[in-house]
Design a protein around this nucleic acid. Structure first.
Lengths: 209, 209
DNA sequence: TGTACATCAGTGAACGCGCGTTCACTGATGTAC
DNA sequence: TGTACATCAGTGAACGCGCGTTCACTGATGTAC
């Protein structure tokens, strides 16, 4: 019992063809969220969701890859913004690091399918694609490195290579996120997530005298 | 320039139809390794690889899901066996835990595509499928829990819920593995992997007096 | 020892399907004269 | 003020493709009498 969900649409007035572009992006992201994997999100399904015919997609995106790429970028940026928002105003850098980790996992758990597509599927990036797509992600990663540096300066974690420490933290939160949205659904809750993050951070503590 | 790789084949003698089953499993695993994702591995490609026609697959597997499921099981068991082999004979439980982590990541990095399919894609397991497929993985996880218990008993890590500690370790090594085979290829090497594992373990250490 | 027959491993051709993408088009809206 | 025309957002029909799966079959091998 499929429901025909083609929506009543007026065509965009003259200078505003860009409106459809945003609607396509939103519909793609929504379908990704609902159906689960990239291949299930077809050009035809996206078009139907927006209420438009398939060829219209090509008015705004060269091909499917470009569309999916654009969605990934937007998810990436969204994740970064969300995490920064959660962390803004926290003065203790160690507490900020902790909160950063929790916010990252929370975002992934709340948006499992975009997270999966962006971080868990293989992208055969060409160099330019990578440089464009990775920018938002790189900014977020740089914030993490800065947070680590602040922790080191405050004596809250042991001196060392901030990049290595940042990778360690990323591995932990990414691991938690993918376990939670993957095969072990339900085995890991927020408490256990917090415990794992705290434990990892404890491992970074300076040696006590 | 595609190469026709249909291999000269003799049909199996009378009671040995099972031989083809094993060949199909091996070919599927090999294709998974080479091409990268589950959808690229088609029944037709598997059949061609084995040197047989597509319908022959259905002599041994009810459908494609059953075939992929069987491959997952075998990868799962293989990972477990490999890790156990690396750890066998190590007496210090903390060192065993460390080595277990390294072996896990090493396996994943060496078999990225099977790892991806088993641990990083969504499986809509029915209950029975899960109970069958998860068995080898559960054994491996139980070994990890046992290792954690041994560490606690030896006073090498702080007393606490061994299940939570095991999840923490799993999140770390799974996170490392998926970062290494995913988008950040090349950013994380074996040294950094070892550092992250050691740091996580340090976080589990008992409070010093 | 010879022959009819059951069994078994595998084949060949075809099915219906949904996919990404292309191409010539339509018809409303704004602009030039 | 009126009309011819360019522009622009979007359409409708079709393309070729590879997929999972089915179905009636073939032909070699072993078995019963």
């Amino acid at each position: 019992v499929e429901e025909k969900t083609t929506i009543e649409r007026r065509r965009s007035p003259r200078g505003e063809g860009e409106r459809l572009r945003k609607e396509i992006l939103a519909a793609t992201q929504a379908l990704l969220l609902e159906t689960g994997d990239e291949d299930a999100v077809s050009i035809r399904a996206i078009a139907a969701r927006v209420g438009v015919t398939p060829p219209s997609i090509y008015l705004h995106f060269a091909d499917k890859d470009e569309l999916i790429g654009a969605v990934c970028e937007s998810v990436f940026a969204d994740l970064g913004a969300q995490v920064e928002a959660e962390v803004a105003g926290i003065e203790d850098p160690l507490e900020a690091l902790r909160q950063r980790g929790r916010a990252y996992v929370a975002y992934g758990v709340a948006h499992p399918e975009p997270y999966r597509v962006v971080f868990m599927t293989r992208h055969d990036h060409t160099r330019e694609e990578f440089e464009n797509a990775a920018l938002p992600g790189m900014e977020t990663f740089q914030s993490l490195v800065a947070n680590v540096v602040a922790c080191i300066e405050a004596g809250a974690i042991a001196p060392g290579d901030p990049f290595a420490v940042a990778i360690a933290m990323w591995a932990v939160v990414h691991g938690l996120t993918s376990l939670r949205i993957g095969s072990t659904q339900g085995m890991i809750d927020d408490d256990l997530t917090g415990y794992v993050i705290d434990t990892a951070i404890r491992g970074l503590a300076p040696e006590r005298p």
